[in-house]
Amino acid sequence: MALLVRVADCVPVLLADVDAGVVGAAHAGREGVRAGVVPAVVASMRSLGAGEVRAWIGPHVCGRCYEVPAAMRDELADRIPVAGATTSWGTPSLDLGAAVGAQLAETGVERVDHLDLCTMERDDLWSHRRDAAAAGRLAGVVQVVA
């Protein structure tokens, strides 16, 4: 079985417990991070027998580029302090990658590989915020291999 997640600025999260043969994938945008989609996937994996879960956080818009209204930033940062950030030009922003990393740590996921690549800063990555309707999607795939 293979799972796929598609994004164009949101945070793609792939998860696996190779020994248990359990995988998970999450599309973690602002609302998904707020709603706890990543901890829910980890909990579901654990209910299926996953123990030592490894996670990969893929390319996404970074806190230097993800400008949001101050109230929106503050609302999420009240729940997950590392989510609060400031853009490189000094306006309120969110660091969803850091927020996902914190959520993974809270669920006991110790092995996290974070591809620190910003979709807005790199022309070789799709970005909905940068390219609007012309943006394609990035895909992450995780698979159990028998």
Rank of each mutant, 00 (worst) to 15 (best):
A20L: 03
A98I: 04
G58C: 00
M1T: 12
D123E: 14
P69A: 10
A26P: 02
D113N: 09
A99Q: 08
E52C: 10
M45W: 14
W126R: 08
D123N: 14
V5Q: 04
C10E: 14
P59Q: 07
H60A: 15
R64T: 08
L94W: 13
G36R: 04
G101R: 10
M45E: 03
V33S: 07
Q103P: 01
A133W: 12
P92Q: 00
P69M: 07
A50K: 00
R64L: 11
V13P: 02
V38E: 00
V142E: 05
P81N: 08
A35D: 13
L15P: 05
G90Q: 06
V11Q: 02
A133K: 13
V61S: 12
A28W: 04
D131M: 14
R122I: 10
A70M: 08
D78H: 14
S47W: 13
L104E: 00
C10I: 02
R6Q: 07
T119V: 13
S44F: 03
D123T: 15
A77D: 01
T91K: 10
V23A: 01
S93G: 10
G36H: 04
A16V: 07
G51S: 14
G32A: 08
G90I: 08
V145K: 12
A71F: 04
P39S: 04
R73G: 02
E110L: 09
I80Q: 00
M45H: 12
R122G: 08
E67L: 11
A55Y: 05
V144W: 05
T107A: 14
V112Q: 01
R34G: 10
R46E: 11
L138Q: 11
G97V: 01
A20N: 04
D95I: 01
P12W: 02
G49K: 10
R30K: 09
H114K: 06
W89L: 05
W89V: 10
S127I: 10
E106P: 01
A139W: 02
E67M: 06
V142G: 04
A35K: 01
A8Y: 05
E121P: 04
L14P: 04
M72G: 08
M72W: 08
A20C: 07
G21L: 01
P92C: 04
V37T: 11
V37G: 04
V42N: 03
V37F: 00
V141F: 08
G101A: 12
R6E: 02
G108H: 01
T107R: 13
G108Q: 07
R73L: 08
M120D: 06
V11E: 06
E121G: 13
L48G: 08
V109A: 00
A102Q: 15
A105P: 02
T91N: 12
V53L: 09
S93H: 08
H27C: 09
H128A: 14
V11N: 09
A139F: 06
G29S: 06
R137C: 09
R111Q: 09
A105S: 11
V41H: 04
L76D: 07
E67G: 12
V68Q: 09
E106Y: 11
A16Y: 03
V37S: 03
A70H: 07
V144A: 12
V41N: 00
A35I: 06
